[in-house]
Amino acid sequence: MTVGLLNDWACMVLMMIGLYTVIARPNLVKKLIGLSIFQVSVFLLYISMGKVSGGTAPILSEGIEVYSNPLPHVLILTAIVVGIATLSLGLALVVRIGEAYDTIEEDEIIERDLVND
């Protein structure tokens, strides 16, 4: 059984679910969750590019000839930790917005801004 492009397509579908959540949901926490889904789909896309058929994990050992590509692993490994750091920065902003406006729904925040003007 061959996978072909199915992995890439699944990544695109996940990416679009994340994008839809970011655009369509007014709740700010939900938007950040959508962003996380988007992020994971990008990670999957990179990692499935690095896979070599019949290869193994890129840790050198005796008697193994074929290794998967280590470069995408390095990029994504750091991206995951940077992702959680930026996600927490976004969540901190949401907490402060919630305290200032008493709501974290985007449309209500815009309404309150218009009233204040």
Binding site: I47, G55, T56, S68, H73, I80, V81, I84
Partner: peptide, 21 residues
């Protein structure tokens, strides 16, 4: 997909710290 280091990080970060946050 052979990315053991990445899987390790994702399990610790995604399922642990980010849920708590």
């Amino acid at each position: 997909l052979d990315a053991v280091d990445v899987a390790f990080t994702e399990a610790a970060v995604g399922a642990g710290v980010s849920t708590v946050l």
